[in-house]
């Protein structure tokens, strides 16, 4: 689980101070897939950086579970000089948990999700979708308690994107991980999440939370009539 309690954060630059986040509170239950949407530049990525512990809030409290956070970024950031397999082992090496058991688990995960035949290949030999999948397996290899997804599909073309985001969501769900996705794509948020959190323009705070419970997978959700209704609601809230 992850809880933000009345969080504020300000950027400091030479020209002044910018309040990026102000009085932000929300909670994600264990196993929940939550999305945060908001107007662009509203400080969405800042929220993930705080959740990952990369930056410290100016005020407020972040309550986290005991486990670590795994971060998935806008681009896959696979290392070209390593094979797919070595890329997947990277977090194990960094966290000094590079044991045979952990490697075995990571490999099993990779094989389970169709990367088996690509393990010895270089990332450049993989398609965009496969690369993002490898990046996800790399994130999962260290067995994080919560996944932080920073618009991980935004660099993909539309068709690949639909495919990959459904794919990634399915993997996260079947591994029973908690996830927090930041996106500017309303339909992506509705299709993937158990809960959509809508943010205000900067300084960001929560203006609405919507549980999504109709249909149980992204594809059937997109085809459901309630999808369009919800889209309209969120669109209005975002003021687009």
């Amino acid at each position: 689980m992850l809880e933000f309690k009345n969080i504020s954060y300000s950027y400091h630059t030479k020209t002044g101070e910018t309040a990026a986040v102000s009085g932000l509170s929300f909670k994600i239950e264990k196993g929940q897939f939550a999305s945060v949407i908001g107007p662009s530049g509203c400080g969405k990525s800042t929220i993930l950086s705080m959740a990952a512990g990369l930056i410290t809030p100016s005020s407020g409290e972040i309550v986290k579970g005991s486990g670590e956070a795994g971060y998935m970024l806008q681009r896959d950031a696979l290392f070209e000089w390593r094979t797919v397999e070595q890329n997947i082992f990277l977090p194990l090496e960094i966290k000094k948990r590079n044991t045979p058991e952990m490697r075995e688990k990571a490999l099993a995960l990779a094989k389970k999700y169709g990367l088996g035949e690509f393990l010895k290949k270089s990332p450049s030999q993989l398609s965009g979708g496969m690369r993002q999948r490898a990046a996800l397996i790399r994130t999962l290899a260290a067995e994080p308690e919560i996944l932080l997804l920073d618009e991980p599909f935004s660099a993909l073309d539309y068709q690949t994107r639909l495919e990959v985001c459904d794919d990634v969501q399915a993997i996260i769900k079947s591994e029973k991980k908690t996830a927090l996705l930041v996106t500017h794509d309303i339909s992506e948020a509705i299709a993937l999440s158990d809960k959509v959190i809508v943010l205000s323009p900067r300084p960001a705070h929560v203006i609405a939370e919507h549980p999504v419970s109709f249909a149980n997978n992204p594809k059937s959700r997109r085809n459901d009539s309630r999808f369009a209704e919800m889209f309209e609601v969120l669109r209005t809230e975002l003021g687009i």
Partner: peptide, 8 residues
């Protein structure tokens, strides 16, 4: 950023 997030 990835390395930092992994705590490298």
């Amino acid at each position: 950023t990835l390395m930092k997030a992994m705590g490298a």
